[in-house]
């Protein structure tokens, strides 16, 4: 492999031009909270790097059809400081508050969470649960993908080498949708998640009418939990039903592993219990 180069484009057009001929393994660097650690550890072999941090075109949040569109470089701190983000995507802001410490929140980006596709990236389960879409941009155009199609596996995405993530959109909140977020880590701040859960659901006339849930750190990448919807939609939120749904999702939808932070068995058990607790809180209207 030839020597690594870092390219520092100053505008989106420059970045797209650089990527148009990029080698397939070229890394895109946003806030660096994941990649700079990888470089330090030596787990990631040196490769060509395009640093996107200076692309101010990729920052900021705005209204879109009653929902929210976020530039890829929108940081956790940006979300925490945005009334619009709070109004449109409250659980995403809750999640941003639990990411790392202040120094990390000032650097970690929404696009970086998606692009690095770590199974432990805290924002990704929330984006999945809220039905977010990713806008990929290249010199030849742009395309939108649902997050569940964008995340294809362990640190793998559907991004082509000539593309970058331009923005992420969260659709308008369905009427009456209730949302929950929960992160389980070693300590409150600065810990990498053992289990992350995000839920979005609506109830009408005492029955679930829609359920969309996702989890992080329990599979090769953040995953939807389709079993919850299968168990719950059309059903009343009674205790036995919620128990069964949490149990089935933890059993069927998760594929956790043993690693330095936790064990597969612990993660599966915690996932089940956190799902059950959060479903209860959601059904109670919290």
């Amino acid at each position: 492999m030839s020597a690594p180069r870092v390219t520092v484009p100053r505008s989106l057009d420059e970045a797209l031009a650089a990527l148009a001929g990029a080698a397939p393994e070229t890394l895109l660097l946003a806030g660096g909270t994941d990649l700079m650690v990888e470089f330090e550890s030596g787990r990631t072999a040196p490769r060509d790097v395009v640093s996107l941090w200076r692309l101010d075109e990729l920052r900021g949040v705005r209204d879109e059809g009653g929902g929210l569109r976020m530039g890829a470089l929108t940081t956790c701190a940006d979300l925490l400081g945005s009334d619009l983000a709070r109004a449109r995507a409250d659980v995403l802001v809750d999640a941003a508050a639990e990411v790392g410490a202040v120094q990390i929140q000032n650097r970690a980006t929404v696009g970086g969470n998606l692009g690095t596709a770590s199974p432990a990236a805290d924002l990704n389960p929330v984006l999945l649960a809220l039905g977010a879409t990713v806008r990929l941009r290249s010199a030849s155009g742009s395309r939108d993908l649902p997050v569940e199609e964008f995340l294809t596996g362990y640190r793998a995405t559907a991004r082509r080498p000539d593309e970058l993530i331009e923005s992420i959109a969260i659709p308008a909140r369905p009427a009456g949708e209730r949302r929950r977020f929960r992160k389980v880590g070693t300590r409150r701040a600065q810990s990498i998640s053992k289990v992350v859960v995000a839920l979005a659901a609506t109830l009408a006339d005492g029955r679930f009418t829609a359920v969309r849930a996702a989890a992080g750190s329990v599979a090769p990448t953040a995953v939807l939990l389709p079993s919850l919807a299968a168990e719950l939609v059309g059903q009343p939120p009674d205790e036995a039903r919620l128990d069964a749904a949490a149990r089935r999702a933890a059993r069927d939808d998760a594929a956790p592993i043993d690693d330095v932070r936790s064990t597969a068995a612990y993660r599966r058990l915690v996932l089940q219990r956190v799902l059950r607790t959060e479903l209860g809180a959601l059904a109670a209207g919290a």
Binding site: S2, A3, P4, R5, V6, T7, P9, E14, A17, A18, L19, A20, G21, A22, A23, T26, F39, E40, S41, G42, P46, D48, V50
Partner: peptide
Amino acid sequence: RRGFSRRAFLQGAGGVAAASSLTEAVHAAQ
């Protein structure tokens, strides 16, 4: 303390290698 890893990443540019496809693309486009 940093050992090989960061150095391997931090070294590099300077002397080595002619323009890659990446840098060629940048040059061509600018």
